[in-house]
């Protein structure tokens, strides 16, 4: 759904005369939302711009991404990057499927509840946010009071 949201925003930016490029790891959703330019990296969700602790790889991915940004001249084009997550594409079998990878198998509802309150990564972050906001308007947290 993030890919859809970002696709819609990319179109709005471009309509405001700002050139955009969207990275994506969900090619079908991006194609449906159809942003002006996209680069597809065939990694699992959560790695749209690369892998943890691999700055050289991530830099190479970004160099290729920016090259596509300059090269794409067809509205809605998607450039496929050559990088692979692993030697086997077996990780794709269990994405949003039962742990066995068999759609006929037993499904586990691993979706996270849609909590209506702010979700802190660390307990200490809540203390830090309280300190930032104490009695005054926040200078950095734009948009939270809509």
């Amino acid at each position: 759904m993030c890919h859809q949201t970002v696709g819609l925003i990319a179109r709005q930016l471009e309509e405001a005369d700002v050139p955009t490029l969207s990275m994506t790891s969900a090619r079908d959703i991006t194609r449906a939302a159809w942003p002006p330019r996209a680069v597809f990296l065939d990694y699992p969700l959560g790695h749209t711009a690369g892998r943890a602790g691999e700055p050289e790889l991530n830099r190479a991915i970004m160099v290729d991404t920016l090259a596509a940004f300059e090269a794409i001249d067809e509205p809605g084009a998607i450039v496929d990057l050559p990088y692979r997550w692993a030697e086997s594409d077996g990780w794709k079998d269990t994405v949003m499927r039962p742990p066995t990878g068999d759609p006929g198998g037993e499904w586990v509802d691993d979706r996270v509840e849609r909590y209506p309150d702010p979700q802190y990564q660390e307990v200490a972050d809540e203390v830090a946010a309280a300190a930032t906001h104490a009695g005054r308007e926040c200078a950095v947290c734009v948009g939270i009071d809509l």
Binding site: V112, Y120, A129, C138, V140
Partner: peptide, 11 residues
């Protein structure tokens, strides 16, 4: 989000 900011909700 950055430390010091209020994070997002899930809804």
């Amino acid at each position: 989000y950055a430390v010091g900011q209020t994070p997002f909700t899930f809804r």
